[in-house]
Measured scan of single mutants.
Amino acid sequence: MQRVNMIMAESPGLITICLLGYLLSAECTVFLDHENANKILNRPKRYNSGKLEEFVQGNLERECMEEKCSFEEAREVFENTERTTEFWKQYVDGDQCESNPCLNGGSCKDDINSYECWCPFGFEGKNCELDVTCNIKNGRCEQFCKNSADNKVVCSCTEGYRLAENQKSCEPAVPFPCGRVSVSQTSKLTRAETVFPDVDYVNSTEAETILDNITQSTQSFNDFTRVVGGEDAKPGQFPWQVVLNGKVDAFCGGSIVNEKWIVTAAHCVETGVKITVVAGEHNIEETEHTEQKRNVIRIIPHHNYNAAINKYNHDIALLELDEPLVLNSYVTPICIADKEYTNIFLKFGSGYVSGWGRVFHKGRSALVLQYLRVPLVDRATCLRSTKFTIYNNMFCAGFHEGGRDSCQGDSGGPHVTEVEGTSFLTGIISWGEECAMKGKYGIYTKVSRYVNWIKEKTKLT
């Protein structure tokens, strides 16, 4: 034993070699072989497995989906700052455009905790909710729209109204504003409101030439003092309507412009014939205590009207009353817009006519005020429907199939267009061939041609 100890002390290297040989010859039971080890760690190889990531292109799944990435790591994937920024906006807080917040056709661009709407022409605001041009839906104005110097929408209202708090709607500024039905039992019968379409306001006024200088022999019209197929109006439903009495009662109609003036057809009036105007009328054979009678003290036909040349060209006249009318729910003026808007309103496509005229061709006159909704007829169809001249200051309205029309005794009465609950004068009943005849239409004086003249002559002093 002493000898062994001496050998170990003198030859430590020998001992180490012996131990190493023993270990190498022993069977290893701690580690699995290569094949079995792979069965336990069965993990798919990654895209760049075996390579240094710093030297390969980034992978979106590896960089940002398996674990949260930084902007720089995302930049490695896209290799483009702009594309990385677009991805980053949604990656950080989701897609803010998912709810489609942009209105009126706006395009949404996502941002971090926010979004941006790219608005089409005519709109602005956070969600493109603000109209900035009158060309689109009248700028959301209830009545009139004008573009300011910086191309912003400025709404306005006709006389007797003021802008509401929203700067879009119009509200009454006087007790009985024009064009409004205020009798409670008839307010439910107000005709369907007309909503502004998209309009090209630059070209809204037709490029028409008034044929002022045409000389033409007097034409022989049949029954051209021209509501057939209409309905009984309720008291106060058309408070701007008046009836004219002269040699015979209810020979023509008219509309209240203001307390002192009536507008009617020029062919209705004769110099030297006494005319009485009755406002607030409903049943011409009954006294309903809503009527107001006034005498006409002055007749002003349009300066281009000449019955000797043509009885229905420039067929418009103004009547001055001896005493002002007292405005109330049964006696209310009709609204008159400017030339541009009167023309736009007419193009809405349908209007209402009213009167006490004959209820059928050569038949009896109506006792109760009649009204009828009539569609506008395109000019080409209008011209083809008659052998008589249709001037540019006239328009056609009615039904091709016949059966409904204005008729004798309705002449001078109103053709009105309702705009968001307020009625505007767009025409004056003038003439036609018979009444409600198939293929024939009622012919009306186009008020847009005469609004400046009306307003100039009827100013209240």
Rank of each mutant, 00 (worst) to 15 (best):
I210Y: 05
F55T: 15
R180P: 02
V273F: 08
M394R: 03
K438N: 07
S148Q: 09
F221Y: 08
V92R: 12
L52I: 15
V181F: 05
I112K: 08
E208I: 12
N258D: 04
E420S: 10
H415A: 02
V248N: 10
T426Q: 01
P239C: 01
A397E: 01
F388V: 14
S107C: 04
E270F: 08
K45Q: 15
A26F: 05
P175G: 07
R364C: 04
S187I: 11
V242G: 00
A380L: 10
C435F: 03
G50C: 04
G355D: 02
F251K: 09
G442M: 13
N59W: 04
T426N: 01
N245V: 09
K68W: 05
V227W: 11
V377Y: 02
V243L: 07
S114N: 09
E288S: 10
V257D: 00
G355W: 14
T16Q: 08
V447Q: 00
K446E: 05
S255R: 00
R358Q: 12
V296M: 02
C102F: 00
V368W: 04
G427A: 02
T218Q: 08
E288R: 06
F55R: 15
N306G: 03
K362S: 09
R140N: 14
M6Y: 09
F87P: 15
K137M: 11
E98N: 10
F196P: 11
K446Y: 02
C128G: 00
K457F: 07
Y161P: 00
E340K: 06
F424L: 01
N222T: 09
G229D: 12
I300S: 03
L32C: 05
C28A: 11
T271D: 05
S70C: 04
A337M: 01
G125E: 00
G230M: 07
K459G: 11
L372Y: 12
N310K: 05
E434C: 13
N5W: 09
T218S: 12
N38T: 14
V77C: 05
G442R: 09
T225M: 08
D405F: 13
G442S: 10
N313E: 09
N48I: 05
H282K: 06
N166A: 02
T158L: 08
N328I: 00
V269Q: 03
C141Q: 00
E10R: 04
S204T: 08
E35L: 06
N138L: 03
T458M: 04
T84N: 10
K347M: 11
F424R: 00
E124L: 04
Y330C: 03
E53T: 10
S169I: 05
T215A: 11
Y371A: 14
A233R: 05
G442P: 04
S217L: 06
N80V: 08
P375F: 10
D315P: 01
G160L: 01
C396L: 00
V242S: 00
K234L: 09
M65D: 05
T194R: 11
S25Y: 14
T422F: 03
G254V: 00
S182G: 10
F196M: 08
T342W: 01
F221W: 12
W453I: 00
E434V: 10
G427L: 01
C407E: 03
E208D: 12
H34A: 11
L369Q: 06
C102A: 00
L103W: 04
A149C: 06
E86K: 15
E171P: 03
N166K: 02
I284D: 06
A250K: 08
L103V: 09
L52Y: 08
E401S: 10
S169R: 11
R294C: 00
S354K: 09
F360I: 15
E124N: 05
K339N: 10
V359P: 05
Q143S: 00
L14Q: 03
F87M: 15
Q90V: 11
L244Q: 00
K347R: 14
K137W: 05
G355C: 10
T342A: 06
E193P: 12
K362F: 05
N166E: 03
A164L: 06
D200Y: 07
Q143I: 00
Y312E: 02
D95T: 06
Q237Y: 10
I429V: 09
P239W: 01
V359E: 06
H302W: 06
V326I: 12
L321D: 00
N245G: 06
R83W: 05
R226A: 07
F221K: 12
W453C: 00
L19E: 02
S114M: 04
E27Y: 06
A192T: 13
Y444F: 15
Q2Y: 12
R294E: 01
Y91Q: 15
N393V: 02
F360M: 15
R162G: 05
I136Y: 15
R358D: 10
S350R: 14
N166P: 01
K39I: 09
T389A: 14
D200A: 11
N5F: 13
P120G: 07
T81A: 08
P197Q: 09
D110Y: 04
N127K: 05
Q370L: 03
K247N: 11
E73Y: 07
I428A: 00
Q90A: 11
L189V: 11
G413V: 07
K89P: 15
Y22L: 07
E420W: 15
T417H: 02
C108E: 00
I7P: 11
T417I: 05
N104P: 00
L367H: 13
Q96V: 06
A397G: 09
E171K: 10
V92M: 13
F348M: 15
P172D: 04
G349A: 06
Y444H: 03
T342P: 01
S350Y: 07
F123P: 01
T461A: 14
L189W: 10
T426C: 01
E27F: 03
